[in-house]
């Protein structure tokens, strides 16, 4: 067991976890941050996506110890003082979910894309988001939501 300090959504959290335990397992099972989802544990579905220093990673394949030096952002950290992030707002406005289980990972992946590519072409969105599965098949609306978020950011909404 190791004592880790993880910077999650702006707060330093102490957690005692064995070496090798995945960041996903630590978030969900030790810190009760259940917005990040388990979908496959193999980096194939994107449900567990979080931001490490702004970059999207699969938390199921990332040992928590590796994340100890980074700023970790989970779905719970995007809303600021009761205001949704542009990507969250765009997903809500477009109704870009059905069961919603993939939504956290989708929102985080889109957030990371728009951070580096504020005005992505459709092919860029598809390429960047292709590792995220929506089994309900809401892809067309998710594409629309990412485009809408891009426009919101261009009009001055923060990322």
């Amino acid at each position: 067991m190791g004592d880790l300090v993880l910077n999650i959504n702006g707060a330093n959290l102490h957690v005692n976890a064995p070496t090798g335990e995945s960041l996903l397992s630590v978030l969900r099972n030790r810190l009760n941050l259940t917005g990040t989802k388990y979908g496959c544990g193999e980096g194939q579905c994107g449900a567990c996506t979080v931001l490490l220093d702004g970059r999207a990673v699969r938390s199921c394949l990332t040992p928590a110890s590796v994340a100890a030096d980074a700023k970790i952002t989970t779905i719970e950290g995007l809303e600021q003082k009761g205001t949704l992030s542009p990507v969250q707002q765009a997903f809500l406005d477009e109704g870009a979910f059905q069961c919603g289980y993939c939504t956290s990972g989708m929102v985080i992946s889109a957030t990371s894309l728009l951070r580096t590519t504020p005005n992505p072409a459709e092919e860029e969105i598809v390429r960047h988001m292709n590792g995220n599965i929506c089994r309900c098949g809401t892809y067309p609306r998710i594409l629309d939501a990412v485009k809408r978020a891009s426009q919101m950011i261009a009009k001055g909404g923060s990322r």
């Binding site: 259940t34 917005g35 989802k37 719970e76 707002q89 809500l92 109704g95 979910f97 289980y101 956290s104």
Partner: peptide, 21 residues
């Protein structure tokens, strides 16, 4: 009418069966 409690799905607040503690 938009999905009931839609906001909870974009903030990660909604608790699915696997999220219950």
């Amino acid at each position: 009418i938009p999905k009931a409690d839609g906001r909870d799905f974009v903030t990660g607040k909604h608790q699915y069966p696997s999220d219950i503690t």
